[in-house]
Nucleic acid binder design. Structure first.
Lengths: 187, 187
DNA sequence: CGACGTCGGAACGGAACCGTATCGTCGCAC
DNA sequence: GTGCGACGATACGGTTCCGTTCCGACGTCG
């Protein structure tokens, strides 16, 4: 039986290495060194470097966004944005995620894993917020949910990870109002 | 005198290698091989791999967005979005850019170069569109330009490069209307 | 107790790459 | 036509990494 704690140590080491050097620079020897583990322990679990990386990254699931029902669309949106900000500000996630995005173009299997583990769950949470607002009568029923969800995630990722600009409370407040207006929310 | 055409061949080779394997996997030997050039030609120009990569990527300037004055904010925004879509869909750019974004977190000098060569010029173009709209009376003068610009670039990058979903004309049309509403544009 | 499987560690041959040095060649300027 | 400088090519010693194969130690289970 493979020791679970060894597997955990390896997983942690892989994520640390990914955060530091990116996927392209990750080496088996460095992972083993950091995990305090023999290379044999790595190859006993995965048959190649790529397989290990994809496996670890596929299991790199995202902390579920807490989309508490605040009772209003404004409150819900603000909460979703705050959760996104917290997620993207996390030291490890914020370093690994952009690399993961870049690698999607080169590894279709990784892209699929990411979509399943990261994209879909998050989108479902966001969709629930919209649905509640529709039921409350705050949003028209024929709203373009696809587009609305893009509008929630995109600006924060763009601003923090792409533009490397600050995302503070004022920004989230202003963005909330902008999104409300874009969606045609009723007062 | 260094031959300009050799420099060009090297630059092309670097960009091709970057598109194929990413920054982390780029090697001097591979670049020289692809460019049909001796390694000496590389080290004659740059003193290290990192210096070469940063130099090439800094010169990897973005094709200026054509922000023709269409006479209306709706037309201008639609044109900006179309330009963005074309840019991000470009086979080479779309592969290099996410990698560049990821690497920004690891190389502050690269981040600065990218901001100067890519971010700023693009934002100035976008700001001009907003300014024209304000002068036309289509937008309030106290509009949050920072936020408005994020709203233009973010969704397309998000959708195409992060989510890997399709960005078609209908999407751009719908996004245009959403942005207009978000900005509080007058009819 | 004894057998088994995983453990960390070390070593292997082979490959890729680094950065430098040194060829002989070619083209241009003087 | 002579000299200079960049050129492609090749080789170098050194490093890093791959993936595999051993080893002795340890723990667990029967």
């Amino acid at each position: 039986m493979l020791h679970a704690d060894v597997t955990d140590a390896i997983t942690e080491a892989v994520l640390d290495e990914l955060a530091e050097g990116g996927i392209g620079r990750l080496s088996m020897e460095a992972v083993a060194r950091r995990a305090g583990v023999g290379k044999s322990a790595l190859y006993r679990r995965w048959s190649s470097r790529d397989e290990m990386v994809v496996a670890v990254l596929s299991g790199f699931s995202v902390p579920r966004v807490v989309t508490t029902d605040t009772g209003s669309l404004r409150g819900d949106i603000r909460a979703v944005l705050a959760g996104l900000e917290e997620w993207l500000t996390h030291p490890r996630f914020s370093r690994i995620l952009p690399d993961l995005v870049a690698e999607q173009g080169r590894r279709p299997d990784l892209a699929a894993a990411v979509a399943e583990a990261v994209g879909e769950p998050r989108r479902e949470r966001g969709a629930a917020v919209l649905q509640r607002a529709v039921e409350r009568g705050e949003l028209p029923a024929d709203i373009d949910r696809e587009l609305a969800l893009d509008l929630l995630g995109a600006p924060i990722y763009w601003r923090h990870s792409v533009r490397r600009a600050e995302v503070d409370a004022e920004y989230l407040d202003a963005l909330t109002e902008l999104v409300l207006r874009a969606l045609g929310a009723k007062a």
